[in-house]
Structures are given as C-alpha cells and as structure tokens.
Design a protein around this nucleic acid. Sequence first.
DNA 1: AGTAGCAAAATTGTTGACAAAAACGTGACG
DNA 2: CGTCACGTTTTTGTCAACAATTTTGCTACT
Lengths: 221, 221
Amino acid sequence: MTVLPRTTPTNSESAFQIIRDAILSGALSPGSKISEAHTCQIYGIGRGPLREALRRLEGCKLVEIKPNAGAKVSFIKPSQIIEIYEIRESLEGLACKLAATNANKTDCLALRSIITEQRLQMTQNNGDLAPLKEGDLDLHFSIVKVSGNTQLFQLLCHDLYQLVQLYRLQPNTSPSRPHIALEEHTQIVDAIERKDPELADLLMRRHISNARQELLANLSL
Amino acid sequence: MTVLPRTTPTNSESAFQIIRDAILSGALSPGSKISEAHTCQIYGIGRGPLREALRRLEGCKLVEIKPNAGAKVSFIKPSQIIEIYEIRESLEGLACKLAATNANKTDCLALRSIITEQRLQMTQNNGDLAPLKEGDLDLHFSIVKVSGNTQLFQLLCHDLYQLVQLYRLQPNTSPSRPHIALEEHTQIVDAIERKDPELADLLMRRHISNARQELLANLSL
DNA sequence: AGTAGCAAAATTGTTGACAAAAACGTGACG
DNA sequence: CGTCACGTTTTTGTCAACAATTTTGCTACT
C-alpha cells in the first residue's frame, strides 16, 4: 500500500501548472493567443493533455476558450476588478468575522508575526516594495485560513486572488500605500486577537474598500 | 458576415451540458464513477471531447478527477454546504445592498411580480412545493442580476447555486419553510424598493442565516 | 482459511493522423 | 479604391490506436 498516490505528475497536470505560472508571472501577456500546435511543441507534449490543461485554466478564469477560435489569456477589465474587489470586501469581511470567532492563541501569534515581519521589511528596504506585496497576501491568506471555512479559502485564495494578480500586471499597476495598509492590518489583527468579530469584519471591509477606492482613482487618472 | 458564431455545438460542449444536467437532476448520483469508455459509448463521442467536458465539470466542482483513477460525481458533505451558506449569506447580502442602490422602477416591478407569482403558487397548490423552490431561486437570481455586479452573478448563480442544487438531492432533503421564506422575501423586496441598502443587506443575511440554521437542525436530527 | 505474489483484464494517459472550420491571401469585378 | 469570391493555409475538433497504470482474479504456499 503506497501512501504517495503518484510519483510523476501527468503531462496535463504539468502543462496546467506551467502555463498558469506563465500567465500569473506575465510571461504570457493578457489577451495573447495560446496556439495549440505551438504550445504543445514547446512543452513537448501532445495536444490532448494540453487541451485538458487549457480547460482547467478556463475553469480558473485565467484563459478564455471560444469554439473553433482557440484559447486566449484572459484580460481583466477595470470594471471587472472593481467588481471583484466588491466581492473581496464582503468575503474577507466574513473571513475576519470567522477568524475572530475561531482563532486560538497559536493562530493569533502567527498573524502577529506576519505583521512584525512586514514592519521589519518596510523599515529595512523602503524602496523595494515587492516583498511587501507578498507579505500583504500572506496576511490575507492566513486570516482566511484561520477562518476555518475551507470553501471560502478555496474561493478567495485559489480563484479570486489569481484574478487580482492577473490584473496587477496589466496597464496601470497601482503603487499601493504600504504604510497605511500596515496600520490597517495591525488594527485588523488586534480585533481578531481581542475576539471582536464585528470590528474585525468592519475593519477588513474598510481596508479593502480603501484599496478599491485607490484602484478607482488610479484608473481615472 | 454571420452574426451567429456557430450553428452546432461541439461534441465537448454537448457532453458538458448533458452530463451537467444529469448530475444536477440526480440521474448521475453523487459519488458514482464516470467511466470514460462507458460514457463516451453512450453519447457516441470520442474520449478526447469527453475528457475536456469532464475537466470543465471539474472546474464547476461538479466532478472530482484523480490521476489514474478517473472522475467521480462530487459528494457535498454537510459541513461543506454549511460553509457555502456562510458564503451565500455574505454575498447575497452584498447583492441586496447593491440592488437597493442600483435598482430602477422596472427592476422593482420585476422583483415584485416574482413575489406575487410565488404567493399565488402557494395559495393554489399548497401541497406541491416544487414550483416554490423554483420561484425562490428566481427571486434570488433576479436580485443578484439587479445588483449589476456581473462577477457576483457568475459566482453565485453559476457556481454556488449548482453546488446547493447538488446537495439538495443528497441524503436528507430539507422540507424548507415556504410561508416564512415568502414573508422574508417580501420584506427584502420592500427594502430594495425603498432604496435602503443596509436594511436589504441585513434582511437577506438573516434570511439565508435562517435557512442555514434549519439545515443545521435537519442534519443533526 | 488466509495471504502473498503474479498474470490477465480493464481503465486511464498519451499520441499521431484525419476531418472540419476559420483565417489568410490573391485576384477579379463594380 | 473598396469589396466580394474563391482557393490555400493554418488552426481547431475529433477519432482510433498504443502505452502506462491500476484493478482484478487466480494460483500457490504457509
């Protein structure tokens, strides 16, 4: 009885991961077409597994497939990202509410450590904001995880955040507002630690609403 | 220049729709395996298109595919449906808030007509509750549509409701509480009509929370 | 009887070839 | 000059056959 279900991933699985990462890193730019013949020649696989991988990516909303016209990397319009932020506002508020209800001391310590790490990053290299973005996601992910709602985790951390990431590498990358965000994060974790679901909910909603407002302001420059 | 992009759907598309409907209608029961050879023989198509259809269904969370083990119809556990109801509570609250903000008179009339239709159905055949379920979904769908957030519509009406439907045809089908629900619906539409976003949000959250509580009570019988 | 091992069957993963559709380019015509 | 038609080329949709993995069933042995 082998506990490990498999040793090598299938070609379809490999292609899925490779293409997904290529899309999320920007190597495949939004709107560009993914030619089957070309792509499966590059990765050295057949068209069958590739088409399955593309269908999975379609399920993640990362590519759009039209019959007899092939697959294109999704292009997220500004109006769509605003809508997604409205959804995030609601769902991450819920995540905070649940997190404040369910978090134990270990959870709180983990959240707190992310904050201190992020604060450290900021004082050290205040020019480079790449690790801050990462830390920002770390905190949001961790809160959703602490919420205990696995469906919510799946939805937010696997589906919606990928779309947000896809948007970020499009026309106008917002510069973000690290100092204010860090302050808001601290208050949110405080509320979770104090087991105040309503406040945690409110603060997270406001936090994401602020980010959305800034998005709106940036795209009407 | 033909405006209609295509006349006949692809085999993959047909298989996707047929299998999806079979799952949602209960013809394919949750947990049952979907054999490739068997299935593609029934529908008279090749394995390639069938596998693509299965990948799409996997993206809808209606089937689970494991490497070298094939596809099974998803089985929604009670804990999962509770989590989904928590998400619905949050998202449909948002939908109501947006609907109350954006609804014009035509929208309000449409919502109102669904309510009156539902009330009519109830007084006529108070034994058969099948059309009530349909009307219930009609109202929820319409509110989400009126909200104007297309991403939210996609998420709620295409993804989450399918999972709810899949759960309904599993072990313990809840009898539901039509009269109370109708009353709650009426109040929600009232709030939307009065352009009171906060109240509409609150009422819808409470409405779904009540449904969730009843789910919880039913599965701990 | 129960189990370990091995062979046979069934099922999934993958490929290449063929059919059909769309995209492209060329040329004739108004 | 623009546009319509048509043949070529490219790309997608589909199938059937092969390879690899899993499952099944049988046999032999303790």
